[in-house]
Write a protein that binds this DNA or RNA. Structure first.
Lengths: 261, 261
DNA sequence: GGCAATCGTTTCATTTATTGAACCGATGGA
DNA sequence: TCCATCGGTTCAATAAATGAAACGATTGCC
């Protein structure tokens, strides 16, 4: 059962080691993180750099994400403006709930935050843009997974299920149950599974062929997760996801709980 | 003297076939454009798709640029906000000149438009965002090349120098002369070399290690290229490039004509 | 100031993934 | 109905990826 270890995939995987708190990486660090041989890593890095996907500081020899992303995201947006639609939807979701709103999208094996509109409350949830969201510990991740294909679910859960907080669910069976619940209602909840005293509510949005693309969510301090708030939150989040689905030209899949819309 | 044709580079090169007027490409078209075997192209495409760099419409099987660019450009911007700085600079350049302002950045072997602020005049130059700029026929290209390393210059000029308009310079020696002029003054001009009756003025901007990153430019109808306009335009463009260099945390290289600043 | 660790980089024999012609079934237009 | 073209698959031949070791240059530590 050889998965076909394409060289291209290996090279592109190096980019996944960037995150909001690690924006610059050197050769040796790449080699250590990826487990590749230093020579191999170097060849990948120079290849990526030559196409503008990385940028090497000529003095420190350290690598950063390159200008190609500027170029291609620009290009993608002209033909397929998602970023703008996301911004609008999140602003409204933030306005109606008063909480921090975020949207995520699946890119490869990662669910990545693509935009955040923060709450203006003093006690609020602050998120890093561009961060990867663990599938099993966030509402966004659960909302996405619930409507993903079986092999994606399996792939996501077969990784190590890190415990991020006291209430993180690390049992694969329990997560499967949670996903069933999400499928039934169309929304996902978390309560202290990503960070202590932080709750999340999320709903998936879909693409043109009924394929789930990512999720829309809010995050808020657990103290504000009172029952009456929650029902309002759920409605708002679902509406936001529906709207984004529409703006994206997407369709809900057949197995989506219609009554939940 | 085998150049070592890395598979990774070949795969990433496929992405270069996207442009503002071709935002979706099928397998066979990729194979034809790139000259790769269909099987090879397919393997590259699925690899790119699996990492989110491409997105395949499940019905038409056609490929588009994927969501990974959203993710990584977001990530790049949080640590290194260029897009915003560019927007500000271009708006001011547009305000002071009244003409269409654009910024470009080198990504791999291409000089790509990353942002455009259009003139509000009726008779104006309209540009497509994300388009690749030919080095030899645009002011942006000449401004960049003039301060690039010798091997980049050679690489850029060794490609076929397509004639885009009546006055396009396709003679390599003449272009070298133009580059000398640009080095002396710090600004590049074009007059009808990219499109008839369109003029351009451009200046390079630099990165943290004194390396040229791209250029800032304006494009305008040739009728407005009167001598007094031109001197003002040059000053405005140079100032804009200087500002962008500063915002980017860049430095001018030692061989930059200081009196030109 | 000198020693040691670590950095990025190069080399080269070994291995393994990449390559491409031919083939397949599906789709769609003439 | 036929033919062209689409996306995708197969498999032997081949060419490219690999990794241990070594190199020189910094860097940091005693």
């Amino acid at each position: 059962m050889s998965a076909g270890p394409s060289t291209v995939i290996k090279a592109l995987t190096l980019l996944d080691y960037f995150n909001p708190s690690r924006t610059a990486i050197g050769l040796s660090e790449f080699a250590k993180l990826s487990g590749y041989n230093k020579a191999t890593a170097l060849r990948f890095l120079t290849a990526l750099e030559s196409k503008g996907f990385l940028e090497q500081d000529i003095e420190t020899r350290i690598y950063k994400l390159g200008p190609a992303f500027l170029r291609f995201s620009q290009l993608r947006e002209t033909s397929f403006p998602l970023a703008e639609a996301v911004k609008v939807v999140l602003r409204d979701l933030n306005a109606s709930t008063g909480e921090t709103a975020l949207a995520s999208v699946i890119a490869g094996e990662n669910l990545a935050t693509i935009d955040v509109v923060e709450s203006r409350k003093l006690n609020r949830v602050t998120l890093e843009q561009g961060a990867a969201l663990p599938f099993h510990a966030t509402a966004s991740g659960l909302a996405y997974l619930a409507f993903a294909t079986d092999d994606i679910i399996e792939g996501a859960l077969s990784r190590e299920l890190t415990s991020h907080a006291g209430k993180t669910i690390t049992d694969q069976r329990k997560i499967a149950d949670r996903l069933d619940a999400v499928r039934a209602t169309g929304v996902a909840h978390t309560d202290g599974s990503f960070e202590e005293d932080v709750m999340g509510v999320a709903a998936p949005y879909f693409g043109p062929s009924g394929k789930v693309c990512g999720s829309v969510a809010i995050g808020f301090p657990a103290v504000r997760g009172t029952p009456d708030h929650m029902t309002a939150f759920e409605e708002d989040v679902k509406r936001a996801a529906m709207r984004l689905t529409g703006l994206r030209g997407g369709y809900y899949p057949d197995d989506f709980p219609e009554w939940a819309l």
